[in-house]
Amino acid sequence: MQFSRRTILQGTAAATVAGLTPGGLSAKTQALPLTRQIPSTGEVLPIVGLGSWITFNVGNDPKLLDASADVIAAFFESGGRLIDSSPMYGSSQATIGFALEKLGFPESAFSADKIWTSSKSEGPTQFTETRNLWRLKIMDLMQVHNLLSWRAHLEMLQEKKARKEIRYVGITTSHGRRHGDLEEIMMSQDIDFVQLTYNVLDREPENRLLPLARERGIAVIVNRPFQRGSLIARFSGKPLPKIASEIGARNWPQLLLKFVISHPAVTCAIPATTRIDHVKENLESAAGPLPDSTMRKTIIDHIAQL
């Protein structure tokens, strides 16, 4: 978990990526995902990360734990860094911790998790539990989940950041909840990250939150880029717009993801998946060209006609 190594890794647009599987170095050449800077430090992150809602909640099922570790290995091999979870997501944190240990704690990993409790006193305890489940000493990013008791938890997280137990502080919401409150927090609090829902149909953040994030120098993590898969199901079988080939989008998931990460305020989108081919496909979306503002409008217009 060294910043210098990360910077070297992400600073290269295309490179030979060393395999991170315990089996050894299986070098292969592939395009690395594009990166964006975290405004508060300048550290760069690949613009596609990995969510864990539902997908890594596999309990203590040994077969599914190994399958999840394989997905996470493929994520790192493809140049991904940020993995996001929450105490709300069942055993997902423990699954990620299992995978990180199995993979030898890849240095490029960027750990993002949340505090999810209405109790102020439970916040520090939950942080310790989360860190233990990830099997890490330092968490890269801790966020207040869905603005729950955010004042108390944000204060606690800022203290932990000052003590270097965490590197970044953020706050999250999902599915358009409490955007007004989120805007106030972004205006008044010293936070590094904000996480919100943004996709081709849920574009309300374009009006205030995304411009505000740029203005205030706050990194943006986008959850539900596929509306939990419903967008893929909805558009599957429908024709792609002609510009899809121009930006290297071979299918709807890639087009939908390219739309999200092409917004200049977005730092990282975190689609979740249980499939290795999908995780590779997602990171491939971030390696190729992205739609410009004209193309983004074309995508919106095309989808409106479907």
């Binding site: 909640n57 596999v58 069942g90 869905n146 909840r177 409490r178």
Partner: peptide
């Protein structure tokens, strides 16, 4: 604090495969 904004699927934390297994 904001229960009204949650739907049933928010509490469905697992996939059909995980539940069956």
């Amino acid at each position: 604090g904001d229960w009204s904004s949650y739907s049933l699927s928010d509490f469905l934390l697992f996939s059909p495969q995980v539940y069956e297994r």
